[in-house]
Design a binder for these strands. Structure first.
Length: 292
DNA sequence: CGGGCGGCCTGGAGGC
DNA sequence: TGCCTCCAGGCCGCCC
């Protein structure tokens, strides 16, 4: 098995990927065949202070001796299923990375949690900013897990669509940008894809969710699915060297139409992409084709 | 109780 | 060159 690293790419300072839903799905698809069937023989916690404190003793007690059955995803959480009704719940946060590699490979700074596998391999959780999390629970308790219980539908699943968005937005005063990023309504839509989807749908990010009619709800839902599906098909590439293509609409190396392109030309009209701050986060949109 | 916002955290960028 | 400040953002929890 060759060295495989998934998650945050560090191959160059100008190339990076933030783990939004497509990245997490790509990690899942890569990880599953690498891990399936492998038994955990040890767990090392080098830094327990992640988003929530890692309980090393509990991790060891639950997971040692168990074998990986499969890897699934719920929202941006990876669920690694083990024998013995055990599930490892991993969130990559902003900068998290999961690697499967041979145990002789030198540890890196920020390799916080190591799962030693039989056969001389290790699953390593690496996360410089420590916004990620590693938790263990029983598979049967997953639906009621405090991190998962309140989550809305999967954007690519059967419960999400224009009708759903219309129904749940009727009395929501939030701007639509905040609304689609709210995991209670729909999961997996981060800042980047929210900007991209609203641009694609031609909807102004400041519009109150309750003011969207059925048609625009349908357009927003379709755009979210299109943007996420496209990114998964490209292997979870969110941002690749986008800084070098700022102001170069439709430029090489990125599929982002508005994100990070403030001051640049709109790919669709003669307008200029604008950056505003909503709920403390950057929003990029075209005032020309995303009319209020 | 909906929703705005602070805080967590590091590294890279930009200013001086 | 080094130091200092700002910024990035998912998500929880506090608070109005």
């Amino acid at each position: 098995m060759s060295r495989v690293v998934m998650g945050l790419s560090r191959s160059s300072s100008r190339e990076f990927e933030m783990p939004e839903l497509p990245e997490v799905e790509t990690v899942r698809r890569t990880l599953e065949p690498q891990l399936k069937g492998y038994k955990v023989v040890g767990v090392s916690v080098h830094e327990p202070r992640l988003r929530w404190r890692v309980d090393g003793a509990r991790l060891r007690r639950c997971i040692i001796g168990q074998s990986v059955l499969g890897v699934t995803r719920r929202a941006k959480y990876l669920q690694i299923f083990f024998s013995g009704d055990v599930c490892l719940l991993v969130h990559l946060g902003m900068t998290g990375r999961l690697s499967v590699l041979r145990s002789e490979v030198t540890l890196e700074k920020h390799d916080h949690v190591i799962f030693h596998l039989e056969g001389g391999f290790e699953l390593r959780f690496h996360d410089p900013r420590r916004f990620g999390s590693v938790d263990v629970c029983s598979i049967s308790d997953l639906p009621s897990h405090p991190r998962l219980a309140h989550l809305g539908p999967e954007p690519l699943g059967p419960d999400f669509g224009g009708d759903y968005l219309y129904t749940v937005s009727r009395r929501v005063r939030q701007p639509v940008k905040a609304f689609v990023m709210d995991a209670k309504r729909v999961v997996g839509v981060g800042n980047i894809y929210a900007c991209e989807a609203l641009f694609m749908a031609g909807v102004n990010p400041k519009t109150r969710a309750s003011r969207l009619g059925k048609v625009r709800c349908e357009r927003v839902a379709d755009a979210i699915r299109t943007v996420l599906t496209g990114a998964i098909e490209r292997g979870g590439t969110t941002i690749r060297d986008f800084e070098s293509t700022v102001g170069t609409p439709g430029g090489y190396g990125t599929n982002l139409l508005v994100y990070g392109r403030d001051g640049g030309g709109c790919p669709r009209c003669e307008g200029v992409i604008k950056r505003i701050v909503q709920v403390g986060r950057s929003t990029f949109y075209c005032p020309g084709c995303q009319r209020a």
